[in-house]
Design a protein around this nucleic acid. Structure first.
Length: 402
DNA sequence: CGAGATTCATGTGAAGTATACCTTTAGGCTTAA
DNA sequence: AAGCCTAAAGGTATACTTCACATGAATCTCGTA
């Protein structure tokens, strides 16, 4: 019986008109043919990078803008265009794109350089080598491979926050050490005031050119959504008003186009799953919740064990006590009991405090130091997880431990 | 009553330690001449 | 003698611990009105 149902299910799935024509187009890593409302920015980036075609070193660029304003997209777009042209004319230019946010990939000096080398096609061990040895490896392989390297460091603020700005200084200085090879840096940052606490030397050499990407407004967001949705979805598969609402959601969150597109995509997936032939408003609402939940699940499940235990302790304490905030001392006491149950070695309170700070950075919890006068000084820990997802997350963590 | 000292509970920086992993080197074994 | 493998030695980055000092407002203390 089950079998027959399944066959029927698959058959009706095939017969059904799919909502998506081409899902790839609306996924976040897709680079579209056209980027609406970013002409000026594309022109700027292109004209700054153009000297690369004559193997002159382009100026370093520093790009600011909130998330989802098309920074990464614009840079990647210009670079692929430039890249294909270079290939056609066999100009020896290489591009390396690195996202510094990725934990355990490019969040320290060593890992960043190692990752660059990997992108260029060699292999480096994850640990064990002296950092200057890795630099040396990098230097040695550069001239043989290429004459000009354009290095894109996305979310550069994360890197500097964790590893300091010495790396950038070293990178900008490389040019004076190399004769037949040059490097241009493109730094991309979400943090608008980030460069203020950089070493002045680094700052000046990194921001030879500066670009600011303004947020999209609601009308532009609608444009983008329409443009992509006509390519991605079957005709007439979106109910009136959905796109407008989608744009409005995202415009409220500082004009984040990525978020708007994701909202639309997930709505589509939900609608399809429900056998609906149109994307309706209710799907949009469901999508918003699902995105948030997926984001959390994604972040949390990739955390190291100890971090998960710390988070679990905080959540558990939060649910049990029903009080709005928790203090480090209580959380740590509770953590010690939990850690025993899952057979892990308990960490010190010092480390615990650091992990709390890291979780805070991830936006899962919010911690701020408060002084309670006579009764000492502590961190007040709150939780940034929407109430309706809290139980799910708690369960997720319990599953991980068992 | 108010200014200044005290106090608490933890934040936080610096330095040290453990672990996991890397390369180099030396010794032992095998192999081919 | 040359070539290859293995184990030990020596070195590193990273996550964590230890130590020691910093913080900052509620509370206490004490001089003054």
């Amino acid at each position: 019986m089950v079998q027959r149902d399944l066959d029927g299910f698959f058959e009706s799935y095939l017969e059904k008109d799919p909502l998506f024509l081409n899902k790839k187009i609306i996924q976040s890593n897709y680079t579209p043919e056209e980027i609406p409302h970013r002409d000026k920015e594309i022109d700027s980036v292109a004209s700054i990078l153009a000297p690369a075609l004559r193997l002159d070193r382009p100026s370093n660029i520093f790009i600011y803008g909130k998330t989802g304003t098309g920074k990464t997209l614009t840079v990647k777009y210009v670079l692929t265009r430039l890249g294909t042209l270079c290939e056609k004319k066999s100009i020896n230019v290489k591009f390396v794109y690195i996202n510094c946010k990725l934990k355990r990939v490019a969040d320290t000096e060593y890992r960043l350089i190692a990752q660059i080398i990997r992108e260029l096609g060699s292999d480096v061990p994850a640990t064990g080598l002296p950092t200057d040895e890795v630099y040396k490896l990098f230097f040695d392989m550069l001239p043989s491979k290429t004459q000009l390297l354009i290095l894109v460091l996305d979310e550069i603020d994360q890197l500097v926050g964790k590893a300091g700005d010495e790396i950038l200084y070293n990178l900008t200085r490389i040019n004076s050490d190399l004769h037949n090879c040059q490097i241009s840096l493109i730094g991309i940052s979400n943090d608008l005031v980030f460069s203020n606490n950089l070493d002045p030397r680094v700052k000046s050499s990194l921001s030879e050119e500066e670009l600011v990407f303004p947020p999209y407004n609601a009308v532009q967001l609608q444009d983008i959504l329409r443009h992509r949705s006509t390519l991605a979805f079957r005709e007439n598969s979106i109910e009136d008003g959905v796109i407008e609402k989608c744009a409005a959601y995202a415009a409220r969150e500082h004009g984040d186009a990525r978020r708007a597109l994701e909202l639309l995509r997930v709505s589509g997936e939900l609608a399809e799953r429900q056998n609906s032939n149109k994307i309706k408003m209710k799907h949009l609402d469901m999508a918003e919740e699902k995105i948030e939940r997926d984001r959390l699940v994604d972040i949390i499940s990739t955390q190291p064990k100890q971090h998960q235990v710390v988070l679990y302790s905080i959540i558990k304490l939060y649910i049990d006590s029903k009080s709005k905030s928790i203090f480090t001392g209580d959380a740590y006491e509770y953590y010690k009991t939990v850690v025993k149950k899952v057979h892990l070695r308990p960490l010190t309170q010092r480390r615990f405090s650091d992990i709390v700070a890291e979780l805070d950075m991830l936006g899962i919890i919010c911690a701020r130091v408060v002084s309670k006068g006579r009764y000492g000084r502590t961190k007040e820990i709150g939780i940034d997880i929407p109430e309706q997802n809290l139980k799910d997350i708690e369960k997720l963590l319990e599953d991980i431990f068992s």
